[in-house]
Design a protein around this nucleic acid. Structure first.
Lengths: 144, 144
DNA sequence: GGTTACATGCCACCCAGTTGCATTTGCGGC
DNA sequence: GCCGCAAATGCAACTGGGTGGCATGTAACC
């Protein structure tokens, strides 16, 4: 990736993902997916709203995010602060495995993806386990 | 506990806890704490509101719950549905250890406490780990 | 270029939780 | 038993994340 700006790289990646899906290429989808791909941690609706300025409506942003999750292009992390954060799924480079742990910073509220995975325990009879999620809490680099 | 109804037992337990703390005994606190003690799983604000009918105001309920958490008489579980659920802490019988796993039912949304505990992994340099939480998802007995 | 189904913008709304403030109430002291 | 006061409660209005409905705009196929 020579003189191409990072932004453009992610924009292109985003477009490629969308065309792979046979989905409609729209400004909002490209921008949101590119932002998620570029981010090193899950972004909240609020984060994205700021980053994208008024590229699209608040509601559209919600809908695009929901759509991305639906299409398995992103996944949703629910935080202690009752806001959802979104991560682009990286199928090519599996930076983090599926069901990887999330670190929630008690200081700034940010969420980070970790390599660690949840070890799946046994559950009582009658319960059907489908997924396990490991949540870590503490202070991130900035807040320590 | 002979002819004493369960309700009364928990009411008494609740009163005892409050007096231990040297805290003021109020109708709302007794009722809420008793309800939590009697429950076999974390209760949401909504659950409690229904159960207590109009024993107290919506806001008071929020305040009592916050106070109980503050006093370490209860703890809070955050669910996927963005509502908080509350569990009485059982210090005498440690039914569940601290930091025990929670099972979230994808069917009815209920949350259950489990014996299993999170295994604490290593975190990257600069991060300070304070707590680990294990979330299990699937179907509960009723929903399977 | 024209058509059409899908995406978007705008509106008003819902729901969980909070804040401010006036009123009530538990409880220790008389 | 009664008083006084701090603590708890009730009420009303508010906040903030998220949703639903519907008219308009637009990507993609022809």
């Amino acid at each position: 990736m020579p003189s191409m700006s990072n932004t453009t790289v992610f924009q292109q990646q985003a477009r490629d993902r969308l065309t792979d899906r046979g989905a409609r290429i729209t400004r909002a989808r490209c921008a949101v997916l590119a932002a998620l791909l570029a981010a090193d941690r899950p972004l909240s609706h609020h984060d994205l709203e700021q980053q994208l300025e008024d590229l699209c409506d608040r509601v559209t942003l919600y809908r695009v995010l929901a759509w991305l999750v639906d299409e398995n292009l992103a996944h949703r992390v629910s935080g202690e602060d009752r806001v959802w954060r979104f991560n682009a799924d990286h199928p090519s480079d599996h930076r983090y495995g599926h069901g990887h742990a999330h670190f929630h910073c008690n200081g700034c509220g940010a969420v980070f993806c970790m390599d660690a995975k949840a070890r799946v325990p046994a559950v009582p009879d009658g319960f059907q386990l489908e997924a396990a999620e490991l949540i870590l809490r503490g202070l991130c680099r900035e807040c320590s």
